[in-house]
Design a protein around this nucleic acid. Sequence first.
DNA 1: GTTAGTGCAAAATCTTTGCATATTT
DNA 2: AAATATGCAAAGATTTTGCACTAAC
Lengths: 146, 146
Amino acid sequence: MNVVENLGNNRDFFKKHGIKHTKQRELIFEILKNSNKPLSAEEVFLKSKEVDDSISLSTIYRVLNTFIDKDIVVKLSIVEDNISMFELNRVDHGHHLLCIKCKKTVDIGHCPLGVYENSLEETTDFDIVGHKLEIYGYCPECKKKK
Amino acid sequence: MNVVENLGNNRDFFKKHGIKHTKQRELIFEILKNSNKPLSAEEVFLKSKEVDDSISLSTIYRVLNTFIDKDIVVKLSIVEDNISMFELNRVDHGHHLLCIKCKKTVDIGHCPLGVYENSLEETTDFDIVGHKLEIYGYCPECKKKK
DNA sequence: GTTAGTGCAAAATCTTTGCATATTT
DNA sequence: AAATATGCAAAGATTTTGCACTAAC
């Protein structure tokens, strides 16, 4: 699916979340939608530049933070590096397995924590809003090379 | 338990991990041992200074990174901020519930992921080394105030 | 026309690194 | 004595912010 073709399709989505529709937000949203793995701000920036060369990195950060405020996006942080990764907050969410050697990520199906969170809410009286789960290790290839 | 009293007790522990015993490492290790929640580098720094005023922040980072290399410490990252948090890599590990309003953390008992990781290793052929799980929401007090 | 978003450059924050000195083994 | 760790200051990296300008409603 080509990013450019879809620009403009998400007006209603933005309106629903009470934020203005701009071409930068449209673009960043499409990039995240079309990515099957979390992206760094820098990666989003580079992909954005392919379509709109004048976009700035601060816009990327501002848009991503707006999306986070609206719960459209979640922020992760890859294990040993100090950079944030962003991905759409998909309703039926799963998680990723991260290879700490080659940094490859693999989707793992359904999130195992739903039931657990319910019981936690009861025992702790917290209002649980979400969670971040990152599982890491060595992928089959890197495992062999060890 | 007073941190200072215990300085020097961990010589063998360091030797076992093949790293030199220094008073800075001893101190940082004790601080982490006596904390029931993850600490930022800055927090470790401030606590360290109470005992050894001449310690430097770069030493904190270097020691923490050494500990991470040796699997003595794990690094987390608190949801919306961009700072890393460090805590001892306890063998029988649980996780924390984080209040996104007041930043309080609450221990939750046993980690629910052990069994799940085993089945994941089978289905994905990964060698799973660890995971990070952060569950967040509103604590009872902040929940009321909403 | 008003409100909100963007680009740019500069600042802020967190973390790492080079080097001379000090400490450990 | 050799190897490693530390403190300091400086550099790096990532993220945020102030301001003038532009685009969206």
